[in-house]
């Protein structure tokens, strides 16, 4: 009976206890750090030095190896924030709010990288640094959503209030995600459609896909590593706050 309830407890509530999460995080941290460094270095070597130049874009297309993985992370992290915000809002899961809060700056950084590298790719290929195309504009909106989320989350003295207010922003802003995803199909403008999709064969040679996928895996591992660092930092901040309150109150 006891084991049964214990098993059922694993899942959503497994990490509700910060102490248990910290133990788990310490265990996996070295592994995600190693995977991040190994995959990113391998992707850089393959993408910049090994893979041949594109027949139309020459060497300029190599920007894809940072641009596409960064854009992918920007979207994925926003989805994680929206889901974690929903979990924090509905079930008041204590770690979910912290996951959403800790993920936001990482997502904002990837969105920024996506916009800058896209601009550096646009100038030689399209002849312009910037165009108010649907994909690019919706990515800029995503950056503002991230910044708004971060600002709103820290705008309250009570972190619970900040978490609830920013959770609403994250959930409303999630409308933007399908807009970004399908913008290249809905509006036929400058930005090219997806290179790799689940439904079609990729429009890229297999040798060029390897560095792209390696970089995606490397970025995911980087995200997990920085997320663990930031979560530990948030948990420490919460303990500091509680200790201070206890000292003032007691």
């Amino acid at each position: 009976m006891a084991t049964k309830t214990k098993k059922a407890g694993i899942g959503l509530h497994f990490f509700a206890n910060p102490a248990r999460f910290l133990r788990f995080a310490r265990k996996i941290f070295p592994w995600v750090a190693i995977v991040a460094v190994a995959c990113i270095v391998a992707a850089l070597v393959l993408g910049l030095a090994v893979v041949p130049a594109d027949y139309r874009q020459g060497d300029a297309y190599r920007i894809i190896f940072v641009h596409v993985p960064a854009s992918y992370m920007a979207l994925m992290i926003y989805v994680i924030i929206a889901l974690a915000s929903a979990a924090g809002f509905i079930w008041r899961h204590p770690l979910a709010d912290l996951i959403a809060k800790s993920s936001a700056p990482i997502g904002a950084c990837f969105t920024f990288i996506s916009l800058v590298t896209g601009s550096l790719w646009g100038e030689p290929m399209w002849g312009t640094w910037w165009v108010w195309d649907a994909r690019i504009t919706s990515m800029l909106v995503l950056l503002f959503l991230y910044l708004g989320y971060i600002a709103l989350n820290s705008a309250y003295d009570d972190p619970t209030k900040g978490a609830r207010a920013s959770a609403i922003l994250a959930l409303v802003g999630a409308v933007n995600i399908p807009i970004i995803k399908f913008s290249v199909d809905w509006w036929n403008t400058l930005h090219q459609p997806a290179t790799i999709s689940k439904f079609d064969r990729p429009s890229m040679d297999a040798s060029m896909i390897a560095p792209l996928l390696l970089m995606v895996v490397g970025f995911i591992a980087y995200y997990l590593a920085v997320l663990i660092i930031r979560l530990r930092s948030e948990i420490a901040a919460r303990r500091i706050r509680n200790l201070r309150l206890a000292q003032v109150g007691g």
């Binding site: 130049a53 060497d59 300029a60 190599r62 920007i63 960064a70 100038e123 030689p124």
Partner: peptide, 24 residues
């Protein structure tokens, strides 16, 4: 020289590295 695209490729990877290492 990156086939003449050095002015675009190196800044792109540089910005990526700078932002990610900075955040870390």
């Amino acid at each position: 020289e990156m086939g003449g695209y050095a002015a675009y490729i190196w800044p792109a990877f540089g910005v990526g590295a700078l932002v990610l290492i900075g955040l870390l």
